[in-house]
Design a protein around this nucleic acid. Structure first.
Length: 547
RNA sequence: GCAGGUGUUGUGUAGCCUGGUAGCACAAAGGCCUUCCAAGCCUUUAGCCCGGGUUCAAAUCCCGGCACCUGCACCA
């Protein structure tokens, strides 16, 4: 039997669908519908809870529109343009900067220059020797006009930069103690050349990013990498391991302790939201795969029906971003560390204004400005005057017990849409006996905790069911009500969108105030009193169970 | 972005070649019936991706655009 078609179900059942569909849609843009939005929010909520529970993590929420200077500093602006050319004979595409670099020809990001360079150096197709076509530009960031004469703004290609530029706010918030981390959930925008596979490659996408900051002399997270479980790891040496994150660090397969920690943390997160632990692996980037800012990156990948796909990148960004922002903005984004205190004598030079006024009443300003210009002499009324005598030099004892440093950054960056895509891919199953679809996601990810169903829409069953529905809503339950269609049809309807519990109001309910509780995965039923529904649904041994 | 293919009610599709009232199944809504896993019967809603052209007449033929699929390239 074929796997259920995720996109078909998602569209039909309001999980996600292409944006602006009535006008034909836009490539790379997708919306979440009534069920999908709730699933997405649940994933975000759990992620935030897990990150914030570390104790030294705080949240940031920045704008999507980003100032050009930020992106110039971060290095994204230089990669704003992708210059490509195509062989007119065999239609192979090349990046023009690659072609020039290979031949040791200077690369300038300028269309005219690159076109000329290709012609003048008579560069041909690397594959077949054919003529190369014109140089085409592809903009990789979305540009937005602002006002009339102002600089344009850009839609952020990652949420991280907003965090880096606000580093000092958080440094103070955490009482100037490292390590700490800042998390942000938000949208990023990349003008992908060809978006594909529904949620897999989008032009506007949801990211959950965490920037953790360290003293490079003590690059350790507050907690140790877990060793209670093992994960699959593929190092860029070609070696593969199945070991705990702690062991991976101890054996230096993962060189950085926090990086190993976040590998463990992300794994716990995936398992909690319902990804299959056997279908998750961590793969280290090869040297030529690394981003411009990273020295070491491990991707978390999920195995889906289309192969392993990247769902999270855990990158060691070093001091790259903060140093770039220090350099470009001229602002202090340093952290400080306490060092053994030592005394230094510092020479302090002050101008003796009293003496100057006394000696030169009207010419005092000329003398003062000469001093401020660091001149040694000044000529007043034809007389050359030595200025040294108007300076008071003293020695002050100073205690130095701090020094500046640029923190290093380790960034786990979770691709929310890809995680949801993998979650559906791994958890949509078809019942062998009936052919109906079941979305087996954990209850806390489910769009609703339960659905209230009168066995029949009459005999006052519907009336009682509505009462039960209201009671559950009043208790804060995430519940739905449905009386339309046969009971079996309704069970199937909610199986398909992942709701774990069916609460059926039947004829026994009228007698003894109990209901039938039916489980999505096992289809088993039990009776429990109305009063206990909420409690049971939230704490039941069935919760999250799979079979 | 290139090459090839595809686009028909909410979903899956027939019809296109050979132009002439757009059909089926499921889903959904209303009704009858019905005491736990998509039952049955009646009724209803709802569609030719968008724009232009050819033609008396276009879902059908032609052109352009958009979207999707596969491959290539791209993925900072």
């Amino acid at each position: 039997m074929n796997d259920p078609d995720q996109e078909e179900i998602s569209k039909r059942r309001g999980i996600y669908l292409p944006s602006f569909l009535i006008y034909g849609g836009v490539s790379g843009l997708y919306d979440y519908g009534p069920y999908g939005s709730r699933i997405k929010d649940n994933v975000i909520r759990i992620w935030k809870d897990m990150m914030l529970s570390e104790g030294n993590v705080a949240e940031y929420d920045g704008t999507s529109l980003t100032q050009i200077s930020v992106l110039k500093a971060s290095g994204h602006y230089d990669r704003f343009f992708d210059y490509s050319t195509e062989c007119e004979n065999c239609h192979t595409k090349f990046r023009v900067d690659d072609l020039l670099e290979k031949r040791n020809i200077e690369v300038r990001l300028d269309q005219d220059y690159l076109t000329r360079a290709l012609k003048e150096d008579n560069i041909k197709c690397d594959k077949c020797g054919g003529e190369l076509g014109e140089v085409k530009i592809h903009k990789l960031m979305f540009q937005v006009e602002q006002g009339q004469n102002s600089d344009p703004l850009f839609l952020r290609p990652e949420t991280a930069q907003g965090i880096f530029v606000n580093f000092k706010e958080y440094y103070r918030f955490f009482r100037e103690k490292l390590p700490f981390a800042i998390i942000q959930v938000g949208r990023g925008y990349r003008n992908e050349i060809s978006p594909r596979k529904a949620l897999y490659r989008l032009r506007e996408f949801n990211m959950m990013e965490c920037e953790s900051f360290f003293d490079p002399e003590n690059e350790r997270w507050v907690n140790e990498p877990p060793d209670s479980f093992k994960v699959k790891m593929a190092a860029n040496t070609g070696e593969e391991f199945f070991i705990s994150p702690r062991e991976a660090y101890e054996r230096q397969i993962v060189k950085s302790q926090p990086l190993a920690y976040f590998i463990g943390k992300s794994f716990q997160f995936y398992v909690r939201i319902g990804l299959d632990p056997d279908r998750i692996r961590y793969r280290q980037h090869k040297k030529d795969e690394l981003s411009h800012y990273s020295s070491d990156t491990w991707d978390a990948e999920a195995l889906t029906s289309t192969g392993w796909i990247e769902i999270t990148g855990i990158a060691h960004r070093g001091t790259y971003d903060l140093s770039r922002h220090i350099e470009t903005s001229g602002k202090d984004l340093y952290a400080q560390r306490v060092i053994p205190s030592r005394k230094v004598m510092e020479e302090v030079v002050e101008i003796d204004y009293g003496l100057i006024k006394k000696k030169f009443v009207n010419d005092a300003p000329a003398v003062i400005s000469a001093l401020k210009n660091n001149q040694d002499f000044v000529t007043i009324k034809g007389e050359k005057i030595k200025l040294a005598e108007f300076l008071i030099k003293s020695h002050v004892e100073k205690i130095i017990d701090r020094e500046n440093f640029i923190p290093t950054v380790i960034e786990p960056s979770f691709g929310l849409d890809r995680i949801i895509y993998s979650l559906f891919d791994q958890n949509f199953t078809t019942r062998a006996e009936s052919g109906f679809n079941v979305l087996r996601i954990p209850s806390e990810i489910s769009p609703y905790e339960a659905v209230v169903l009168p066995l029949m829409p009459n005999d006052s069953l519907d009336k009682v069911a509505r009462e039960v529905f209201s009671q559950l809503l009043a208790k804060g339950g995430r519940v739905l009500y449905d009386e339309s269609g046969s009971i079996g049809k309704r069970y199937a309807r909610y199986d398909e969108v992942g709701i774990v519990y069916g609460i059926t109001i039947d004829y026994d309910t009228l007698k003894d105030n109990t209901v039938t509780l039916r489980h999505r995965d096992t289809r088993e039923q039990i009776r429990i009193p109305i009063k206990e529904i909420m409690n049971y649904v939230r704490s039941s041994p069935w919760n999250g169970k799979k079979n």
